[in-house]
Design a protein around this nucleic acid. Structure first.
Lengths: 358, 358
DNA sequence: CTGAAAGCGCTTACAG
DNA sequence: CTGAAAGCGCTTACAG
């Protein structure tokens, strides 16, 4: 038993619900009123203004083929009801929805490295005339994927590590192509950096600088990137028959790295440290310089500050990754093949050593 | 005279067009075939597979209430036709379109300052559970606004300077709220920095450092920001009865600023320069340090590098601007008032002097 | 100048 | 398990 009503600038349904709870006495009844707000439609305006929906539509679209009297009456009603056009319906009927939007899904927290990737993506899409729809896993993950499912865009970039199995299935059933960025999976499109190689470069750097007691410092986040990067590092040491002196994990900020490094220097044991990222390494560098220690420090990523502060590092060109990712997804879309007939793009980018003498 | 046909993995209309050219002999005829590609719909699949559209829809949505034989037949046809579901239709019927997407429109080229604003926006929207749809004026401007018109999002941030009159009209007729960022218009929502004040701070800095022969350097772009910033600068000088020594405009890059500053120092006239932006000022700073000149240099923005390199500057907190902009548009949307009844948000942020002794 | 109707591509009760 | 039908909110010829 319900009725549609006009109330408080908005149409509402008022729904009376009775709930019978099967208690011992089998008689307890609760009643609720459920109020459902309904969006105002062109039909409502038509009914209230006394015109047909066609006329209302013409007025709303600035059509000139309406009497100005009609025009005003309709506009007045529309304003009063706080009418907002339903873009989705409009898109459907006009067929004018953009075919040139790329989606990207990102983790909750983004560091400078991700921001640079995004800048690269943006630059490339700009060139190609595509728009970018950014989804963040700020809310519940499933909710975001619901949005992704029902949003209209042509392809998705995934800068999030791995997707879950059902997420992949959903995307495929919606025929939505996607490309992993900075992550790799043999079965899916992936553009990523060779972390194993990069870790090795860092090891070589410290060896070249004649370090003998080499230390590894990472943060707590267990990612595939860290695993590969550190494995690459250890493999090279092993190859040179150098034993890893120490391996420490700290929280992901510069200050933690700073105080750790101070301690290490004062203990006077390690003579070279490889930090998982420049963010950490900058803390280490600060400690080194303050104490004027000869300890060697190398980071990873080559963020802008590394250049200014003279930190040796392993460069991963984030901008290039972003541009490449954007270019790839657009190319895949242009081929317009069914998702299971598309050949997988699997591209590994090589990092490079940047020796700034630190 | 045309017919629908199945060809090359896609439905096509082939349209035969005859054109009569009214020449002298009045007889010349040209004929074309116009080929129109039509998207494959669920109806096409139904027709070809021999099932009803309802059944096809159930199969496509992974429904379990279909015979597996039916399921396979339908899927096979869908694959063969390279069927792609129309998300827009799906959204309309399910009503599941995201109400929590904010749009942003950006100029073609974006500098670090804009990127930081975007990072701020992103951070805030993340917090609020909103997605971001980024439009760039890479393509023709009108085309982008067509996209904006037909895209489904709730509010728009404008980081583009001013909108044209018809663009504003379009947004309003679509009931799309918008907020200017880093630009201001008394009649529209605006969040921006006080450039007049900022320019004044720069002037005070140089005066405090006892500069007597003060110079102004900008790039060629005539923006409202530049006008106000430089006017503020001059106003303060005028107030102190100091005459502007020189005013030069160069191209927007560090190198131009570097060589200009070298020349200025060698000429030995000016003893203080205010650069329109840190990007330029960093070039000036480099020249100053190379020659070990005592000339004073101040920039504007406080980009990251300014901190690392010890450049005095006027800080505009881009991150704050972005966060505020995102928060504001969401708040406006939550109030859900008709666009002409919304009171205008007009918020001016104050820049601050950062003295790093340069 | 306006109304009634068809249709955009899909989903989803409702019968059978 | 499947088909026919109604409907999402709009636009747009087509008559009148």
């Amino acid at each position: 038993m319900f009725y549609k009503n006009y109330l408080n600038n908005c149409f509402v349904f008022i729904l009376k619900i009775s709930i019978f709870l099967h208690n011992a006495d089998n008689s307890c009844i609760k009643q609720y009123y459920l109020i459902i707000k309904m969006a105002v439609t062109i039909k409502d305006i038509a009914k209230i203004s006394g015109y047909g929906v066609g006329t209302v539509s013409r007025v709303l679209n600035g059509g000139t083929l309406v009497k100005s009297e009609t025009r005003e009456r309709v506009m007045q009603v529309a304003r009063k009801l706080n009418y907002k056009p339903n873009k989705v319906a409009k898109m459907l009927v006009t067929g004018k929805f953009s075919q040139s939007t790329i989606g990207i899904i990102l983790p909750k927290i983004t560091h400078r490295f991700s921001m640079e990737i995004i800048a690269g993506i943006y630059t490339k899409l700009n060139e190609l005339g595509y728009n970018l729809l950014v989804f963040n896993i700020g809310k519940k993950r499933e909710e975001v994927f619901e949005h992704i499912r029902y949003s209209h865009f042509s392809g998705l970039l995934v800068l999030l590590g791995s997707l879950k199995e059902d997420e992949v299935l959903m995307l495929k059933s919606e025929n939505t192509h996607f490309v992993y960025l900075d992550y790799h999976d043999r079965n899916e499109n992936s553009i990523f950096f060779n972390n194993h190689l990069g870790g090795g470069l860092a090891a070589k750097y410290l060896m070249d600088k004649k370090c003998k007691r080499i230390m590894l410092v990472g943060d707590y986040a267990k990612t595939i990137q860290r695993e590969e990067r550190f494995r690459g590092f250890k493999d090279v040491l092993k190859g040179a028959q150098i034993e890893l002196f120490d391996e420490v994990y700290i929280s992901s900020d510069e200050k933690a790295a700073y105080s750790l490094t101070k301690k290490v220097i004062k203990a006077g044991k390690a003579d070279g440290i490889f930090f998982y990222s420049d963010d950490l390494a900058l803390g280490g560098l600060k400690a080194k310089r303050e104490i004027q220690s000869s300890i060697r420090i190398i980071g990873y990523d080559d963020i802008e500050a590394a250049g200014y502060l003279g930190l040796s590092t392993v460069r991963q060109n984030a901008h290039t990754l972003g541009k490449l990712g954007a270019g790839t997804i657009v190319e895949i879309l242009k081929k317009d093949k069914p998702i299971n007939e598309t050949e997988v793009v699997y591209r590994c980018l090589e990092p490079e050593l940047v020796d700034r003498g630190s």
